[in-house]
Amino acid sequence: MSHEHDRGNMSVSMPTPTSSSSVYNHSTNMKQKTMHMTFFWGKDVVVLFQGWPDDRLGMYILALAFVFLLAVAVEVLAVSPPLKPGAQPVSIALIQASVYAVRMALVYLVMLSVMSFNLGIFIVAVAGHALGCFLVKYRALRMASQAEAISDASPKF
């Protein structure tokens, strides 16, 4: 039995790396973007969806802002609100599970965006996570200092 298989008319044309970010595919007569496997600079990138952002600088900046906000949202959603006494455990668990599901969806979107290997996308994702972490920590520290100020101002018997 031979291990060679008859491939028939199934030929696959693989794009060859060029100096530009797109290549001309002779089999389909369409211009396609190459998939980078190393970090690169430039606005010619595909983030999350085929054809987005297009080759315009404004759309690339919009993609950067979108990934930045996704990363901030991931960090903000990581903090669970304090539980209220007397609340239904099932409803609280459902709400927390729903928030967790949304957070995980956003985490995966950020991860897939970073997998475009575009340095701009990578930098804004890290910056968004850092800003989100800062906002969460700042809010927690501010609330703790306010609670301490209130407890210090209360009369002691």
Rank of each mutant, 00 (worst) to 15 (best):
S2R: 15
E4D: 14
E4Q: 13
D6V: 07
R7N: 15
N9F: 15
N9M: 10
M10N: 14
V12T: 12
M14R: 14
T18F: 06
S19V: 13
S19A: 14
N25E: 03
N25C: 15
S27T: 02
M30N: 10
M30T: 12
K31Q: 11
Q32H: 14
T34V: 12
M35L: 10
F39R: 01
K43H: 05
D44P: 11
V45A: 11
V45R: 06
F49I: 08
G51K: 06
W52N: 10
D55G: 13
R56Q: 10
L57H: 14
M59T: 02
Y60W: 13
I61C: 02
L62N: 03
L62V: 13
A65P: 00
A65H: 07
F68V: 04
A73S: 11
E75A: 06
L77E: 04
L77Y: 09
V79W: 07
V79I: 06
V79C: 04
S80R: 11
S80P: 12
P81H: 00
G86P: 02
P89K: 13
Q96G: 10
Q96V: 03
Q96A: 11
S98E: 01
Y100R: 13
A101S: 08
A101G: 07
V102P: 06
V102T: 03
R103Q: 08
V107W: 07
Y108H: 10
M111G: 06
S113F: 01
V114D: 04
S116R: 06
N118Y: 08
N118E: 01
L119D: 01
A125I: 06
A125F: 06
L135Y: 02
V136I: 01
K137I: 05
Y138V: 00
R139C: 00
A140R: 07
L141E: 09
L141F: 00
R142L: 00
R142K: 05
A144Y: 01
A144P: 09
E148F: 04
S151Q: 09
D152C: 09
A153Y: 03
A153D: 13
S154Q: 14
P155F: 05
P155E: 11
K156S: 15
